[in-house]
Nucleic acid binder design. Structure first.
Length: 472
RNA sequence: GGCGGCGUAGCCAAGUGGCUAAGGCAACGGAUUGCAAAUCCGUCAUUCACCGGUUCGAGUCCGGUCGCCGCCUCCA
């Protein structure tokens, strides 16, 4: 059973085989830090996190690089282009370095709140200016780039494979260009490697001039090469990155090294909100803060985003978030039940009863994940397992096996709550007191204690002859 | 205009030529319960946007129509 991934480059699913056996070099296109990440950004990064988790689940060692673009993307075509960071800095009247620093911290905090595994490194574009210049010089030497004053452009005509990722043809691009072509460019499709502008806020002195800054695409090529080498296994991003960003990265990197850049390109589809696109004018560009202020946990968002396949458009609504929270409660219940069964408190009499059911669920889960990270049917297996637990089909040994399986699921998806929870002594005393009150049928007193516990965030349930508690 | 994706029950979402179309939520009926909450049992798509075609057989392949989404130098 091998891991099949959909490769945007070949437009089909193929078995994943790393360049070096047992090791994966993965580059995730990260955020441009001029504002707070929204749930659409988070979907794309969650896909990268899931991919990394699954590769590790399958026993591979992953070096994961997620870049932080902290210098603006200026579009290639001069003054009509907008540098997001530069623009934001002017708008706020603040230092762009401060802005990027603030949003970088915010971004990493969002990832942590959502239980993302920490990447091996989060390189900053501004810390790789030298490496970018090195590549630009190399491209000039090899005739893949040319200077126009203090600017440097990549010569698309020098790279025959330009368009192999996106399927675009250079001729069609020229015809569809929305922005007037700069005189100094030799061809409309050529893109900037290095630009110069005295008015720019973030700029670097180089042999191209005193007021330079990098083009949009070169930072990823340089950072990937610096941290992962000339050839990498996987490069990810949102579907919008396919063109021009990734197409240009391929051109730069492969023209520079003369070798294939990334073997697998994987892209996440855009998240939709209320059946349509997210847009500022509709006011539906939500962030993790919005999610939390509506009373949802980061975990609810994580689950919602994993309920759809990463390559399908996913529709986000607040109703679905509520739906997810309820579904997660069922999975929490599964964990609790399995623990009780494993302890012999309930379940089938024979310890090994249902082991085959657990093994089948585990295998189906793995098969789904191995099919290009098909998380929806993988998650469905958990509910199937829950049915078996509820119907008392599982014995203590089977439950222990199931818990082991769920630990693996947690490693891969990060949506479960496996924590061993306990009450502090005071709360435990109130809880015990309530049980005594109920035994004595002191209903008023019992209800008062129940309210007290609720204030402490503990929900009490009198179920099936025993009283149990859970958080929230 | 060029290129690509999608349209499955009230909502979300699997399924990519072949047994009775996964799973979740909601809804409805019942059980249980001091109350409450939770839980449990059951019901819930003769049909896959629409129209044609290929095939012994199609949600799955082909053509057309309608709708939504994305890219074509801001975007995850």
């Amino acid at each position: 059973m091998s891991f099949q991934v959909y490769n945007s480059l070949t437009r089909k699913k193929q078995p994943f085989e790393p360049i070096d056996a047992g090791q994966v070099r993965m580059y995730n296109c990260g955020p441009t830090v001029y504002g707070r990440a929204h749930i659409g950004n988070l979907r794309s990064f969650l896909f990268a996190d899931t991919l990394r988790r699954w590769l590790e689940h399958e026993g591979l060692e992953v070096k994961q690089v997620m870049n932080i673009t902290d210098v603006g993307h200026i579009t290639a075509d001069a003054d009509q282009g907008e540098d997001k960071l530069d623009a934001q800095a002017r708008k706020e009247g603040r230092d762009p370095w401060k802005i990027s620093e603030q949003h970088t911290e915010e971004f990493l905090a969002d990832l942590a709140a959502l239980d993302f595994l920490e990447a091996s490194i989060y390189p900053r574009a501004t810390a790789h200016i030298e490496e970018m210049l090195e590549m630009i010089d190399g491209l000039l030497e090899k005739g893949h780039a040319y200077r126009a004053g203090d600017n440097v452009y990549f010569d698309v005509s020098s790279f025959a494979e330009y368009g192999k990722l996106s399927g675009n043809k250079v001729e069609d691009l020229a015809a569809g260009a929305r922005i007037d072509v700069l005189e100094e460019k030799r061809a409309p499709a050529d893109f900037a490697l290095w630009k110069s502008d005295p008015a720019h806020l973030m700029k670097w002195e180089s042999h191209f001039g005193p007021h330079g800054f990098p083009g949009w695409h070169i930072e990823c090529s340089a950072m990937a090469r610096t941290h992962l080498g000339d050839r990498i296994d996987i490069h990810t991003g949102g579907e919008d990155n396919i063109f021009p960003h990734h197409e240009c990265e391929i051109a730069q990197s492969e023209a520079f090294t003369g070798e294939p850049f990334a073997n697998y390109w994987m892209h996440a589809k855009f998240l939709q909100v209320d059946g349509g696109k997210m847009s500022k004018s509709l006011g539906n560009v939500y962030t993790l803060s919005d999610v939390e202020s509506r009373g949802f946990r980061p975990r609810d968002l994580r689950f919602t985003l994993l309920r759809g396949h990463y390559r399908q458009p996913l529709n986000f609504t607040w109703a679905i978030m509520a739906d997810s929270a309820r579904a997660l409660a069922k999975l929490d219940d599964l964990v609790t039940r399995l623990k009780r069964i494993a302890d012999g408190q309930e379940g089938a009499a024979e310890a090994t009863a249902g082991e085959d059911l657990v093994r089948a669920a585990k295998q189906a889960f793995r098969a789904a994940m191995n099919d290009d990270l098909n998380t929806p049917p993988a998650i469905a297996q958990l509910f199937g397992l829950r049915d078996h637990a509820v119907q008392e089909c599982l014995g203590s040994a089977a439950a222990a096996l199931a818990l082991e399986f769920l630990a693996g699921v947690q490693g891969a998806l990060g949506i479960l709550d496996m924590q061993e929870e306990s009450l502090d002594q005071e709360t435990q005393d109130i809880f015990n007191e309530r049980i005594r009150a109920r035994e004595n049928k002191e209903w008023a007193r019992s209800d008062k204690l129940r309210d007290e516990l609720l204030e402490r965030g503990i929900v009490v349930e009198d179920t099936g002859g025993r009283t149990v508690w859970r958080k929230r």
